[in-house]
């Protein structure tokens, strides 16, 4: 009888020990694993920058499409991109740009961790990526547009673009941020459970 009690208690005790390890430490352990691998730091950076550019281009698609139809000069397209970011910074406020940058960084981090975990364990755990998927997707709607009424949100049938939202589209970025933080936690937790982090 005492043996049976011990057996019943054991998973409970293990669970309590696991709970003692704070949620933050799962994430910090996963990130510290990643920062010791230069290739993955570069990957995270490249992904973050690419997503930042992609978010702005997607949300200002008609702006870029119209100039691309006239000229495909890379310098001109770069000038247009810088101009869009500068305008959003000035008109919508620095926070609009900074939040998109943070979403891009978190998205890059999420993808890098998934790649690292899959490469090390040879197992792709899809269910832990669901928040990340929605976060990365949602981030695309948050980048402020640089012309009135042209934002990507128009695809959802919202006339007025981001201007009809009380926070001018910042809602999307904040939602994406929350989802990406959840995703980061679940990915880090799964890495701990797979024995990749301590």
């Amino acid at each position: 009888m005492p043996n049976l009690l011990n057996l019943l208690k054991r998973p409970l005790t293990q669970s309590l020990i696991k709970n003692k390890m704070s949620k933050v430490s799962y994430v910090t352990a996963a990130i510290s694993l990643l920062v010791h691998k230069p290739l993955y730091i570069i990957l995270t950076g490249v992904l973050a920058v690419s997503l930042f550019v992609l978010y702005f281009v997607l949300n200002n698609f008609s702006v870029f499409a119209s100039i691309a139809a006239i000229s495909l000069d890379p310098y001109l397209l770069w000038k247009v991109f810088v101009n869009q970011v500068d305008m959003v910074w000035e008109i919508a406020g620095p926070i609009s740009v900074l939040v998109v940058a943070l979403v891009s960084l978190l998205a890059g981090l999420n993808i890098s961790l998934v790649i690292l975990r899959t490469k090390k364990t040879k197992v792709f755990v899809g269910r832990t990526n669901i928040f990340g998927f929605f976060g990365i997707f949602g981030g695309a709607f948050g980048a402020a547009c640089s012309a009135c009424n042209t934002a990507l949100i128009g695809l959802l049938g919202v006339s007025g673009g981001l201007a009809v939202f009380p926070l001018r589209g910042l809602e999307f970025s904040l939602l994406a941020l929350v989802l990406l933080v959840f995703s980061l936690y679940y990915i880090s937790k799964s890495m701990f459970e797979m024995g990749m982090t301590k």
């Binding site: 702006v63 000229s71 000069d73 247009v80 305008m87 012309a147």
Partner: peptide, 14 residues
């Protein structure tokens, strides 16, 4: 030819 948004002068020049 359509040009959308407050693009930089270089876009209009092109």
């Amino acid at each position: 030819t359509i040009l959308v948004g407050a693009q930089p002068f270089e876009s209009f020049k092109a």
